[in-house]
């Protein structure tokens, strides 16, 4: 009895070994075939590049009309749902009632005292009180959302853009708790019924994942500037923060700029000219 059991275990062991060895052999043989021409994944030649992407928003030139245009451009470019849009009842027959506090926004208007809550005082200059600001993801140098994410679904690219991988996100919303700027939105429901006009160049999202501004990575890759920059009539400028000759560095050098919640040490890449 004992002997046969030992033999059985031996045989089982050998079998397990050979199963384990198969992928290793395969990998070795695959490595050999690499001398033959093989496929390559690459960037487009016209892609816009930077060492560290940054953004300057000129608050002096900003008004409600431009802000509205910017928000709409972003909404269309990224297929962001608008819950005020009346969904097609025939196509989507049993929808749950809309909750507006579950909205999704990437760049939006915020009054000065909310965009900069720490700078609110009793005698805030009249020109700032109630003034609309545009706020979005700050693409921080030290992003707390990236630190918090348990799956690296949100991560920082070498060029400073904080990206979202919707394919990997498990929807734990830890990043939303971690972001000190409230820049992240969660897809509490399927967004499609609430998209009025689809942009075929960008996917929609599925319910249950977090999303936010991606600095138009998909446009930069094609050599186009972000959608908000195009719509902003010169209010928003993007460029390379690490390049002293870039346009945005010149703007920062020659104007008084502030950043949101600098004391937290996340080091935002979005500057506001006051």
């Amino acid at each position: 009895m004992k002997k046969s059991r030992r033999n059985f275990l031996k045989a089982a062991g050998v079998t397990a070994l050979s199963i384990g060895a198969a992928p290793a052999i395969k990998a070795v043989s695959a490595a050999e075939s690499h001398t033959a021409p093989h496929a390559v994944e690459m960037k487009r030649k016209d892609a816009l590049k930077a060492k560290r992407w940054g953004m300057v928003i000129d608050a002096r030139k900003l008004n409600d009309e431009i802000a509205d245009k910017v928000v709409k451009a972003c909404r269309y470019a990224h297929n962001i749902p608008d819950f005020h849009h009346e969904p097609d009842k025939k196509k989507y027959p049993d929808l749950k009632p809309v909750k507006f506090n579950q909205e999704i926004k990437w760049i939006w208007e915020e009054e000065f005292e909310h965009a900069f809550p720490d700078k609110e005082t009793d005698f805030l200059a009249e020109k700032f009180r109630g003034l609309s600001f545009l706020v979005t993801c700050n693409h921080c140098k030290h992003p707390p959302c990236v630190q918090a994410c348990p799956t690296q679904a949100t991560f920082k690219r070498p060029d400073g853009i904080v990206m979202m991988d919707y394919h990997r996100c498990i929807g734990c919303r830890f990043c939303m708790a971690a972001c000190p700027f409230g820049s992240r939105s969660f897809n509490f429901r399927d967004p499609r019924p609430f998209i009025e006009k689809f942009n075929p160049d960008y996917p929609t999202r599925t319910r249950g994942v977090v999303e936010k501004c991606d600095f138009c990575a998909e446009r930069l890759a094609k050599g186009e500037l972000p959608a908000c920059v195009e719509a902003s009539e010169g209010v928003i400028t993007v460029g390379d923060l690490e390049n002293p000759d870039s346009e945005i560095r010149k703007l920062i050098d020659s104007n008084f700029t502030i950043k949101r919640k600098q004391e937290l040490g996340t080091d935002p890449s979005v500057y506001y000219i006051m």
Binding site: K96, N101, E103, M176, F186, F188, R189
Partner: peptide, 15 residues
């Protein structure tokens, strides 16, 4: 099937 929209959570109170 419908997502977390059925909860009272929101963009501001995400847990």
């Amino acid at each position: 099937t419908h997502g977390l929209t059925i909860t009272g959570m929101s963009r501001d109170v995400s847990w």
